[in-house]
Write a protein that binds this DNA or RNA. Structure first.
Lengths: 233, 233
DNA sequence: GAGGATTTGTTCGTATGTATT
DNA sequence: AAATACATACGAACAAATCCT
């Protein structure tokens, strides 16, 4: 194994990443199916055991299904666990960026306002503290024009909100949200000026959560997501 | 291996199911960590290779992380891929049914109305056909009082809608939706009478989708989910 | 339908590297 | 510094199911 990546990733993890990318990008498909374990073993120069462990990981993510003597079948896209951080990353890397952006926003429109509602009604004290501190950080970043930190600060705020919902399904969308928001603000260093006005919405949002005005909080978050929606048009 | 299940499930899959249940139910936890691969191998009477493949599947689902010399660590619940059908099933089997019902509905309130909106605006012809046929089936089931088929029919309808959204993130919540709806209507054979009036809402919903009145469709779905919400109070 | 080839399923033994004690 | 414990990785072998001839 190459001594560089082996420090971090195991061989099965490397193979998983490689095969996952090839499947999501469509290079392996029903017309060009995944080779047999033996062929993969020879091709990558690793043992069949390692290949098998990678295959198991991919099947656990819903990408493939291996049956006796039938080889490795690629499952229909509906089966893919696209909320899985790895699958999401591969989709982002190899898919149409434009289409993905649209679907990101569509999902955020559903999730974030509702999560905000629950954050305002059911958020614990430490949740609200985390939201407030994330807001303060964001405010500072914008005021000091630290463009390279803007994306991370926005992310931190939105993640704090969704965590405060205290619903495990919402909380499980943290990797999704992080990817969706990061992909929107990264590589656009001019985003701060146009978002100074968004800051007033963030302020309104935090106040609403603190005072448990759930409907106001929800609607304000909806406005914020709508602003992000306009960015991709 | 028992000759019964071995016809369907492989050994790694059996081990995955067993360990997954033990982790989700909390029998394995930071105070009582997962044994070493060697111990698991001896305990289940299977080879270490099979254990390793099961471990890889569980790590792909975000439940555990195995590091050299450190054994198998259970990851915090936030990392668990709870939208994964298996993880969801284990959570349902071993967790508090009441709490899960609440979180199911909270999630559906966010997802379903919005998905309905997109079904009305972006649904293809065959999507609408599927929705209509699911509605007709549901209508028939209610009229003929086939109580045992009611749950499946309701499910079919809601799944048809979410598929019509043509958004891969919404579509990926089909297993979630199926579990959430089934758990609500199963074991309650008296549910049909009280839901005859819900049928008028379903009818209104289908008409709205057919005529592309997206806002009406969305609001009607919100009403339907609200009805389900009242059932768990 | 009978039989051989293919491919995954499963096990075992061995060696290696890396922490902990 | 040495021993131990543990996960990582390899390779060989056989079993079992399915496909093709």
């Amino acid at each position: 194994m190459s001594p560089l990546l082996s420090q971090i990733l195991t061989i099965p993890q490397l193979i998983t990443r490689e095969l996952g990318g090839l499947i999501v990008s469509g290079q392996y498909n029903p017309n060009n199916p995944v080779p047999t374990e033996m062929d993969l073993s020879r091709h990558f120069g690793v043992s069949r055991s390692s290949i098998r462990e990678a295959v198991k990981m991919l099947s656990a993510k819903g990408l493939i299904d291996s049956k006796r003597n039938q080889g490795i079948a690629i499952l229909p896209r509906d089966n893919w666990n696209i909320l899985d951080p790895d699958v999401l990353a591969w989709s982002q890397k190899y898919g149409s960026s434009r289409q993905l952006q649209i679907e990101f926003i569509q999902m955020r429109k559903a999730i974030e306002p509702e999560a905000t509602y629950y954050a305002a009604t059911q958020g614990q004290v430490d949740d609200v503290i985390a939201i407030d501190s994330a807001y303060c950080h964001l405010f500072k970043v914008v005021q000091e024009q630290q463009a390279e930190q803007f994306s991370a600060a926005v992310c931190e705020f939105h993640l704090a909100i969704i965590k405060a919902s205290r619903n495990r399904f919402y909380c499980n969308m943290q990797p999704f949200l992080k990817t969706a928001i990061t992909s929107l603000y990264d590589n656009e260093l001019d985003s701060i000026p146009s978002n100074v006005k968004a800051l007033t919405l963030y302020d309104k949002l935090v106040q609403a959560i603190k005072t448990h005005r759930a409907d106001v909080a929800k609607n304000t978050m909806a406005e914020l997501v709508e602003l992000d929606c306009e960015r991709i048009h």
